[in-house]
Nucleic acid binder design. Structure first.
Lengths: 166, 166
DNA sequence: CATAGCACATGAAAGG
DNA sequence: CCTTTCATGTGCTATG
């Protein structure tokens, strides 16, 4: 029965389609997540010196009038945005430490001014320590120091170069 | 001349391939950007109650032994990660304000403790105000207040629903 | 064997 | 016209 084969094909096609839709939906979601100011900004070009792609090579626009960035742009922007957020968090955190230290110098325990709540998604995301509150100072309190680097901020260190093979 | 058509096809194929590679490279970059702890974490499932996709339906592994998340996962994680970073930044920023206020109450001008530098990518990303340093306190200093919400954190507000049509 | 993920080639649509 | 982006279908490969 060659009809069996046919069915299989259709099934597969369907599955494929769903997979694609999933992916596309996520990309679209990323686009929604990125602030417009960021989207329409030349892009900070972190480590790639050869980027002829500056601002809007893809100034496409949707029927409703809004601009419609293509997948490549969305992805590029996503990468950039994450880097920016990571840097921002790092910096903010650094500054927080400075301020806390200053307060401590003046006899104030910064823990009194802890976050009420954040609801970063239920419990803490990384085990239990370290983030949403900063309130759970770990036992001896030594390395809550760089929760960001340890928990959120990926290592930009050289090393693995994952290729798209499998 | 049907040969013309042939050439066109090949050219087209080439172009397509480059496009795909670009996209895939970016996805891979996103993967690299996301901390492992985050990658191997069930995912916080922000607004989607019907997610049968929990942890690792895609426990694929690369030749070198490391786990190799598929595109869907990477993208999902990226979305989640951005949300988390945004929340973290917001929260950090809130706390910073509290600390600054506390210091101010004690007669310390927090501007003295400003960031040295951040190099968030050359100049500031959004015009000139507001971020990388926080150092350029705007004239009267009034609304550097929520740089995050205004500059980085996308509005989750209802409204535009971009479809993948063009 | 069934399922899932991926790369590729191809035709269609949009825009210069 | 030529270029770019996109969705689709299809076969290959790995994993259960």
């Amino acid at each position: 029965m060659i009809q069996k084969k046919q069915k299989r094909r259709e099934s597969h096609n369907q599955v494929e389609r769903r997979r694609r839709d999933q992916i596309n939906d996520r990309i679209q979601e990323l686009a929604r997540l990125i602030p417009e100011e960021f989207m329409n900004t030349p892009l900070r070009n972190s480590n790639n010196p050869s980027s002829p792609l500056s601002a809007s090579p893809a100034t496409h626009h949707a029927p409703d009038g809004s601009i419609k960035p293509n997948k490549g742009v969305i992805l590029r922007k996503s990468v950039d945005y994450i880097r920016t957020l990571q840097d921002a968090c790092r910096e903010q955190q650094r500054r927080t430490k400075v301020l806390e230290e200053e307060l401590r110098k003046r006899g104030v325990d910064p823990r009194m001014l802890d976050a009420d709540e954040l609801d970063v998604g239920g419990q803490s995301i990384f085990g239990t320590a370290g983030f949403g509150g900063l309130e759970t100072i770990n036992g001896e309190g030594e390395e809550d120091d760089q929760w960001l680097d340890d928990n959120y901020l990926g290592d930009d260190s050289p090393g693995m170069m994952m290729d798209q093979m499998e």
